[in-house]
């Protein structure tokens, strides 16, 4: 089984697992606290005590990055789950009910997708308090539009298959059809898409935090850490690059895994949705 996984996917799997383990066990692994000022100076170079040096106010950069990874992954995961539940349920509803329900939902999704999510998110964030819950809600709902389109397309195909017709003729209700007939058959293309949505969430929350409109300090998160340490770059201090490269590595490794899963499921199904 393992030998049939391509090398790129194996590397992706390894790093994805590593990042998730670091995130889950952050308090056990990180040598210092995320908010613990460990030295009087700032931006100290790497040393035996501080493998990546210290940050802009003298906190251990490595510890903060491990905690930052935890925050970023945690928020991205919750937002992905929200986006999938909302998008999939609404997409299935639109496909099964059809008619004006489908029209109303689909046209609204077209409208939301007609402008970039970042711009819409910024507009909303100008009046809402910037808290973790609000961020997850905004990211989840804005992204659910993409899941909606996929879920609807897949469900429309399944909805006209014989076994669904049979269920309808037996007199099963629409909710039964959605959860017992369509959901199990639509699951594999949706799950394959999940990795890509997760990456998008990681990049989204990192960008918002980088702009100062995401996770607020002193909580550590990768995008916010780039922002905190970015000033050092013009003086030749590379502290901001470590969290920046971590974001890229996380995204690339999940991408490699997602690509592999996607190619496997599409070859099984002979094309996606």
């Amino acid at each position: 089984m393992l030998t049939r996984i391509p090398l790129a996917a194996l590397i992706g799997l390894f790093f994805t697992a590593l990042f998730f383990l670091l995130a889950i066990f952050a308090p056990l692994i990180a040598p210092y606290g995320y908010d613990e000022v460990v030295s009087p100076g700032f931006w100290e170079p790497a040393s035996a005590e501080h493998l990546f040096g210290t940050d802009n106010i003298g906190r251990d950069l490595l510890s903060r990055m491990i905690y930052g990874l935890r925050t970023t992954i945690w928020i991205a995961t919750l937002a992905t789950i929200l986006s999938f539940t909302t998008g999939a349920v609404l997409g299935f509803l639109a496909a099964v009910f059809g008619g004006w329900v489908d029209q109303a939902l689909s046209r609204f999704v077209d409208l939301v997708m007609s402008i970039p999510s970042l711009i819409l998110a910024l507009v909303i964030l100008s009046v809402t308090p910037v808290t973790v819950l609000v961020l997850i809600l905004i990211m989840g709902f804005l992204d659910s539009t993409r899941v909606y389109r996929l879920a609807r397309a897949v469900a429309v195909d399944i909805n006209v298959m014989d076994f669904v017709e049979a269920a309808k003729l037996r007199g099963e209700g629409r909710i039964w059809v959605i959860f017992r007939e369509i959901l199990p058959n639509a699951l594999s293309p949706l799950v394959a898409e999940m990795g890509l949505r997760f990456i998008f969430m990681v990049l989204f929350i990192s960008t918002l935090s980088f702009l100062g409109l995401g996770i607020q300090p002193p909580t550590a998160d990768l995008g916010g850490m780039v922002r905190e340490n970015s000033e050092g770059l013009t003086y030749g201090i590379g502290a901001a690059l470590y969290p920046a490269i971590t974001i890229a590595l996380l995204a690339i490794s999940v991408n490699l895994v997602a690509d592999w899963v996607l190619s496997r499921t599409t070859s099984l199904k002979g094309g996606r949705g």
């Binding site: 990456i199 990049l203 990192s206 960008t207 980088f210 995008g223 780039v226 970015s230 770059l233 901001a240 690059l241 920046a244 490269i245 974001i247 890229a248 995204a251 690339i252 991408n255």
Partner: peptide, 11 residues
């Protein structure tokens, strides 16, 4: 594609 704009920018 996997890099947000600001990561590439700072690098």
């Amino acid at each position: 594609i996997s890099m947000p704009e600001f990561v590439l920018g700072y690098i």
